[in-house]
Design a binder for these strands. Structure first.
Ligand code: ZN
Ligand code: ZN
Ligand code: ZN
Ligand code: ZN
Lengths: 144, 144
DNA sequence: TATAAGCTTAGAGTTGGCTCTAAGGTCAAC
DNA sequence: GTTGACCTTAGAGCCAACTCTAAGCTTATA
């Protein structure tokens, strides 16, 4: 049986975070001391590790709540239930990556167009591109 | 001179958002009617469009505040000032992309390992992988 | 027995970028 | 002159996932 600080040390999650997860129904201490101190069993620890792993895999706490409800009763759920959650998360991640890659490209084009030098910015093509709304080819070279 | 709803229609930013940007020092209506209604000049509109373009390029409102202070006095700033902001943002975007790609990979490996079928999840290798902490090769195939 | 470390709770604060509400003043049309 | 659309403000609420605070109780060590 571990106290919260011991569980914290073992998992790398802060005691605050562990209480926060409990408040949101993700984890629990299966026993309490007379004074109300939380005590975590081996099974409790495994559940916390599950949550931590799922979080590191990109799942939201809401996703994790669903995964946990499958975990406690695997018989009543199918592999498809699990892949549905996972695929949905992957779709979100892919969408976000695409969005960021579009921004990445824009920033790279902007950077390529600017000399980056110490002279004053009245000729700066990044500023011009932002002024002109980066339609079309966004920014032409500053040179000449 | 445009009223706020007209500027909203022209830029696609809500009147709420325009007031929000004003409260945060990004934009301003250069004149007000006697009753206090905001009126935007051509120059005001161009500034708002600059903000919008910068936002679409991935800059935070704080970045944009810096870019705007360069914009109003280009003589006192260098191209390097502009690229510093842009490069820093690109670095952040790249870091975020890498983080998401790592998650993407994890999710893909998980999905590959699971049959996704209608049978019950007691043999599900996604659940197993999350239980085991996805160390090493994370998840082996469910088959056999 | 006294000090300090650790535990408890409810609840507030953080971040960023909106988004909305309430309560009221203004303005154009009918 | 009255409806209804539009404008004003300060300030609250939202999202996720923490992060921290305050005030008080418990436990271990000296
Ligand atoms: Zn230059
Ligand atoms: Zn430049
Ligand atoms: Zn299966
Ligand atoms: Zn499976």
């Amino acid at each position: 049986m571990l106290k919260i600080s011991e569980l914290s040390a073992q998992t790398g999650l802060s005691a605050h975070t562990l209480r926060f997860y409990e408040k949101h129904g993700l984890i629990n201490a299966s026993t309490r001391s007379e004074a109300g101190y939380r005590f975590y069993s081996e099974a409790d620890v495994r559940r916390v590790e599950f949550v931590k792993t799922a979080r590191n895999s990109g799942f939201s706490l809401e996703d994790i709540a669903q995964l946990l409800s499958i975990r406690v009763d695997k018989q009543s759920h199918s592999c498809q239930d699990v892949t549905d959650i996972t695929q949905k998360k992957l779709d979100q991640v892919n969408a976000k990556i695409e969005e960021l890659q579009s921004i990445q490209q824009t920033l790279e084009i902007l950077l390529e167009s600017c000399c980056g030098g110490p002279e004053n910015a009245s000729h700066c093509s990044i500023m011009e591109a932002l002024d002109e709304g980066l339609t079309r080819d966004q920014a032409r070279s500053e040179s000449q």
